[in-house]
Design a protein around this nucleic acid. Structure first.
Lengths: 165, 165
DNA sequence: TTAGCGATGTAATGTTGTAACGTTCATCGA
DNA sequence: TCGATGAACGTTACAACATTACATCGCTAA
């Protein structure tokens, strides 16, 4: 059901880049729209998990999410179920996995397809992101030049944020 | 005892870039030299762990290494001990951690200080690396521009390598 | 009605990573 | 010589992250 976008989608998508940063209810709506658009269902469980994920400032682990969703529902939700849905979110671009933190973060502009660069503070753990398509496309190009296909860049920068510095 | 290099070290190191790719005994020697240079000891345990790590084509997990080192020594070596030494290797630039694989890979030119870009094949798992200082410095610059300090870029690209494609 | 399918639940297990503390051994000054 | 110190490594236990296999539930199309 879910297909990875063809790499060229990134190139065309790159031209006119116009970001709608969502938050709160607006974000949830955008997420729902994007998921339905991808031919998937927007269930209560998915809605709850997305809502919880979106409350985090820092990348959230699947277990963090499982705990909060369990509270919210008054019934234990197993990590398993959370992982399933997080995987779905990642493939549909509603969320990103932060590899260097083994955690996930909501995409604040779902439906908008491009690579992003995460900045994760080693002190306070908060993550921000930069959109620099020129840079990410260079990374893609370098990998493709080395013979790689279907590339999926993972660009994260660990460090100290302005507040913690 | 161990200090992180100042970021400017990267900039100066970037100018004349001349790689000595090591392998086998030569690599082990280079590693030993680099470690001693950093004021650390080159013990039997460290030597064994480095040797095992260097035999891998693919990023090796700490547990993989623990198993092989245990065999080699005829005595169980706990993952714990392996982690300690891998951490040391990472801080002294003898090895790198591949975040997106939760695994480690020997640095084929220890003593040579710069960020690198890993390409990891999702099919066969092998990892190669690209050295593109212009690119990695741009990532550093972008992060610093966003107010981050003591930055440590993690640039990895998942995809299909030329052989598996 | 019921066969099929997608979503979720349940239980078990596997993998990765850390914490706390103990032992060994080399060095060094009294 | 003796004990103090400190680095390296051992041992145990546990915490955190992730997956597998299979069961159940509810919808809908034949």
């Amino acid at each position: 059901m879910i297909d990875q976008p063809h790499p060229s989608a990134y190139i065309t998508g790159m031209a006119a880049h116009h970001h709608h940063e969502h938050a709160g209810a607006s974000l949830a709506q955008a997420a729902e729209a994007a998921l339905v658009d991808a031919g998937e269902q927007w269930t209560d469980m998915r809605s709850d998990i997305f809502a919880v994920l979106a409350t985090f400032e820092k990348p959230a682990s699947a277990y963090d999410i499982a705990d909060l969703v369990s509270q919210r529902r008054g019934k234990r939700v197993a990590p398993n179920s959370v992982y399933r849905i997080l995987d779905l979110f990642v493939t549909t671009n509603l969320a990103r996995r932060v590899e260097s933190a083994n955690a996930y973060i909501a995409n604040s502009h779902p439906g908008c397809l491009h690579d992003c660069i995460f900045l994760i503070c080693d002190s306070c753990g908060t993550a921000t992101h930069i959109d620099d398509d020129a840079l990410t496309m260079s990374v893609r190009a370098a990998a493709e030049h080395a013979g790689f296909a279907q590339v999926r860049p993972v660009i994260e920068v660990r460090g100290k944020c302005a507040d913690c510095d």
